[in-house]
Amino acid sequence: MLAYATRKLLISVPVLFLATLVAFLLVATVDPIAEQRVFLLSQPGGAEQVARLEASLGLDKPLLERYGIWLGELLRGDLGTSTENGRAVTSLLAEAIPVTMRLVVAATVFSVVFGVAVGVLSAVRKYTLFDNTTTFFAFLFFAMPVFWLGAVLKDLGIRFNDWWGRRIFFTIGEQSPRLDADFWGTWADRIGHIFLPALTLILIQLAATSRFQRSAMLDVLESDYIRTARAKGVPQRKVITRHALRNALLPIVSYTGLTFGTLIGGTVVTEVVFNWQGMGQLFLDSLLDGDVAVTQGWLLAVGVSVVLVNLCTDLLYGLLDPRVRYD
């Protein structure tokens, strides 16, 4: 297990490094002073001013050196400042991450739990009404774009509120503005706001997860050791809970890690649909404003979290599978 963990950690390092490089390069090619440059160059003596500006921003140095400087500052915990509002990128991220985290965690937990339950049940009850119904919905939601489902749920929520005559579903923002409530009141408000966006992500994730779990379970159910368990006279229910489930849960662990990146993409879209002030909006704004430091910092934060999540799922897999544990 130690060797396995070390190996996984070692592999994470180049991937993490690659992530910083991509985060930097994707954005570094942009010219943050494009507008000033055009203006200044039209002035007499503008070229000098441009050069001075470039030097002050470090743009006169070669790309690789700039990467080195950026990496150095990164290691000191400095991701630069936003060119739009002058705030430190780290503090912008610190505000946005917890908001998004709520959504991501809720979506992951519920889609995995329900996905496993639905997938296992439909594998065990193959070709029954339950299986066929879940298959139908899985196909339906698997074909749905996140942005459309989000907008539909938002529309339905608003219509429901209108019909009911009271606001039951919150459709805008991650929490009520200027909310004056105690700890429990705040969380109740947050849960009210998270319901529809989380449901959007859960339904879509659930579609894929349950299908994946179903086929993993079917594979296991056809394996020789399940037959052995039945030959021992183990009751059907115990064959499933004790022998099949444990083996069929292994692939879902890595699967969760692998789809985390897709989930981040879906979260960005969902946040935009429901007007959340989280990572999604921060990212969108930074792109539209050409706020280089924020975009770089955002990509880096997401990249690191994706790598870490995958490292965690890999390690968890190692813990669950004895074949890896003693590797």
Partner: peptide, 25 residues
């Protein structure tokens, strides 16, 4: 049948590599 399987009638399978549950001692 479950009561008989493994007590009255029991079975050894062909492929020992796949017939044991890999995650159970």
């Amino acid at each position: 049948l479950e009561c008989l399987r493994g007590s009255a009638l029991s079975m050894v399978f062909q492929d020992p590599m796949t017939s044991l549950n890999p995650v159970m001692a």
